[in-house]
Structures are given as C-alpha cells and as structure tokens.
Amino acid sequence: MSAHDHASDHEAGLVHGEEPHGTLKEYLTGFILSVILTAIPFYLLMGEVSWSKQTIALTIVVLAAVQMVVHMVYFLHMTPKSEDGWTLTSLVFTLILVVITLAGSLWVMYHMDTNMMPKHEVSQPR
C-alpha cells in the first residue's frame, strides 16, 4: 500500500509539472458550442419569439450557465484532477461566496426597498 502511494504521488508530481494542454479538437468543439449557446439567447430576444418573458429569462440564464461550464472545460481545461484538485476546490469555494453575495444582496435589498417605500397615507400631512 505504501509503495503504491509513492508511485501514485510520483505520477501526480509529474502531471503537476505539466501544464494542462488543450488540443485543436477541444478548442474547436468549445468554440462551436459557444457560438450555438450564444446565438440562441440573442435570437430569443432579437427575433420575434412569442415566448413569455419568464420563459425567455429562464432559458437564457440556463444557457449562460451551460456556456460557462463549456468555457471552463474546453478553454480553461479544468478537470477535477488539475493541481491535485486545488483548482476545483478554490473554484467551488469562490462560487459559494458568489452565490451568497448575489442572492444575499438581492434578497436583503429587495426587502429593504419594499419596506422603505414611503406610503402615501404616511407622507401626506394631516
């Protein structure tokens, strides 16, 4: 077991020294997927599409999320194993902070806004 650990550590060390390499096929695949994933949301808004606003909004947000993953995989060459997993760990940590920042700000400020709205009855002098 110990010997096996040494061997795999050594292998990881070798991989560690090598930068993640992309291939021509990867870049072209990423580019084509990105073009498709960009064209659809722009078409939904620029073309005459009779979907409801909610459906369009949901679709373009989902497509954006998919496109971000495509960029991560095909352009940034992220794998769970790159840098012994530390790239993915730091990314997940950052994404948690991003979600807290965005959701927290929007949630709190939306309610502040609602509660701070001057009511007409209150603002009118009696």
Binding site: G22, T23, L24, E26, Y27, L28, G30, F31, S34, V35, T38, H71, F75
Partner: peptide, 15 residues
C-alpha cells in the same frame, strides 16, 4: 463574437 473569436485564436497561440 469578437471576444469568442479571440478566445479561440488564443487557444491556437497556445497550441
């Protein structure tokens, strides 16, 4: 489109 194309050409520079 400009930014997407630049991403791909940067990939070609790396290759």
């Amino acid at each position: 489109t400009m930014l997407l194309l630049s991403s791909m050409t940067y990939g070609f520079a790396m290759l």
